[in-house]
Amino acid sequence: MQRASHQAESWLKVTRKGLYCEPGDFYVDPALAVDRALITHAHGDHARPGNKAVLATKETLRFMRLRYGKRAGHHLQAVTLGEVISIGPVKVSFYPAGHVLGSCQILLEYKGCRVVVSGDYKRRPDPTTLDFEVVPCHVFITEATFGLPVFEHPPVESELEKLTHVRTCFPERTLQVSAYSLGKCQRLIAELRRAGIDEPIYLHGSQYHHCEAYQELGVNLGELRSVESCLGETLKGAIVFAPLNVLFQDYADRILDPISTSASGWLRVRSKSFMGSCELPLIISDHVDWPELTQTIEEVNPEEVWVTHGSEEATIHWCRSHQRRAKALSLVGRGDGEE
């Protein structure tokens, strides 16, 4: 008898446009615009503009509209968590992934075979999003951004202690934080609030709008100010956020001798933490680290793991040395020489 996971390769394919479900005629997180797209979360590498029909959580749709306006999609359909929707013969349902607000894993069921597309996910508690839910399945498609055993994110608390220490050393210097506008920025703000920092936090325009959306969706981030709207205010000792691609030149004259800060799982490795020449590297990530990745695979306990996004080699090696079937998602449908 054939394994259910083996059968999945006959109806779920990796194409140029992205992961394609043939019997349902839809894509999950397509890289190019398509007729029908299911979106795990609103980050740019998963949610592209220009799709005709889009199925996603209301939060994800809200962020897509914020980012793409009318180009978010012709027909946007919001799904509630756990609700089962039939697309042709395929049943689809969404479960929290814990990555950013509205992020989901998508379960696809067809002819008795269950495939979970995890999208990006994390297991650490995050005040801005729902916790990851373990969904039993035959095939688990996992990200492996931090798929190397050197990646073990320290507790957020110890990273915030580091931040507090540096601020105590330099009470007059502005803490200048680089962070993605969606997810990382709000998570950091929420963690700062949790650590008892309740002063106003200054944000760059695009981050300010994303935070507004978060607050409207019920996530409390405390008092936020847009940097642009408080010209003339001194930013001495304040916390100022800007997205990674925005240089602080815009208001460089207002920030003297800033403490440049960034937050990422990559900063765990010292040689990488010097690459961006930042003074306060915080090891805080929106992705699972290695212990959480391997633990998740064990909890989900699928027949087969398909690995994408990152260090596939080490993750696949781990799976195989733990008697689990695994392959790189990019090789799905091309045979793996195992059979």
């Binding site: 055993p149 050197v150 073990e152 080490a314």
Partner: peptide, 24 residues
């Protein structure tokens, strides 16, 4: 105590032997 293949993959990413050892 650790899988040699995972060690090699880690070292080639981290590049520094003592740091790789500290992390693993």
């Amino acid at each position: 105590r650790v899988d040699p293949k995972l060690f090699e993959l880690s070292l080639s990413f981290v590049t520094d032997l003592s740091e790789t050892m500290a992390l693993l």
